[in-house]
Design a protein around this nucleic acid. Structure first.
Lengths: 196, 196
DNA sequence: CTCGTTATTTACCGTAACGGACAAAAGTCG
DNA sequence: CGACTTTTGTCCGTTACGGTAAATAACGAG
């Protein structure tokens, strides 16, 4: 179970409610791990049953009471044990890539549309990473272990989005080149630094 | 259901048995989509029930008979329809990244070991991509639509593995730099507050 | 002759993950 | 007042994943 451990990892920073966790999974950690609120609440129950987290009810006026979850010592230990096991490299599972694999059996027009949407999507995310990087790490250096991890993560995310965005652009270009003629010879192999 | 569509995509190239598909999902398409044989056989049954593929039994002597699956016209149509829908950007879900997110709550030694294993893994994969690229596309150019897709995919794969390998190296270096400085709290036993 | 391997397909079962719908109570906007 | 949003959850059904195992048959190692 990895989602549970991702939640434990989030709770190492500070105690949070399910709602806050859902928000977190929609921003910081959510950059590389998606989970909606139902998943999170469910996982939270399991974690509580297992004694890895502990819920403290906070009475609120005007709003429903909230449950603030804190890591228990058992939870910390479980997280450390989980983190000490070798990680399993995840596969991408991007259906866009599957489509490219069957390029000659699908319609190119919708593909092109999709590619453009994806290009925008990845550019947005890239911009977002860069924005956070500038805000949180203006010097590009981290001070503590926690910061180091987050800095590294943000940089990886930024690079990844950049790379995928470039890929979308190149694919779009190759597609255009091909619709002009039957055989293609596009794309250079070096770094492309042209502005978008 | 995306696995089913990935299978349809594979079958556009040539008819295959479940066994061959399992091998395919362990090499070419498997570079970005993992699936074991159980998943594939299960999916194959569903696809057959739906009329998207058709199985032809080939009697073999000495081996169990095999079922060669071919795309039906309905399957082709289904694939095209699926490919015409906007793709959903997948999230990474790599537990190594989750660990980095909780860097200051985990033990660094196993992390380092893991990072080294991952570095090797991604380097291997990168070398593999490059090898295939050189073999299949020595000029770096593609001739047909199908080839274009595969060339693009291979290049993306190569770049991705390169990037992740670099990331592992950098993380390892940053970790070393940090333990050298030793400005951070060591997570080793003795420091743990754990209950007695 | 048995044991392990390769080739092939399939079943059973439990866990993990996904995602739509619903509930409930207080806030704000028009 | 009512509609809509925020906050905090629950319920339920489906899909996906993955371990273990089994049937069948040739081929080679010990």
């Amino acid at each position: 179970m990895a989602l549970g451990d991702a939640i434990l990892a989030c709770l190492t920073e500070r105690p949070m409610t399910g709602y806050e966790l859902a928000k977190t999974f929609d921003s910081s950690i959510g950059f590389f791990w998606k989970a909606d609120h139902q998943q999170i609440y469910r996982e939270l129950s399991k974690l509580r049953d297992r004694g890895h987290i502990q819920g403290r009810e906070v009475v609120q006026s005007g709003k429903p009471n909230k449950l603030v979850y804190t890591l228990t010592p058992e939870g910390r230990t479980a997280l450390r044990h989980w983190a000490a096991r070798p990680s399993t490299p995840a596969s991408t599972k991007d259906d866009l890539l599957v489509r490219l694999h069957a390029l000659d059996s699908i319609d190119i027009e919708p593909l092109r549309t999709d590619l453009m949407a994806r290009l925008e999507h990845h550019r947005d995310r890239h911009a977002n990473y860069e924005r956070i990087l500038k805000k949180r790490f203006p010097d590009g250096t981290a001070e503590g272990r926690l910061d180091l991890g987050n800095l590294l993560l943000l940089r990886l995310g930024a690079r990844h989005e950049q790379m995928v965005a470039d890929f979308c652009e190149e694919t779009l270009a190759a597609l255009s080149a091909m619709s002009g003629k039957a055989s293609v010879v596009p794309l250079e192999e070096g770094k492309r630094e042209g502005k978008g």
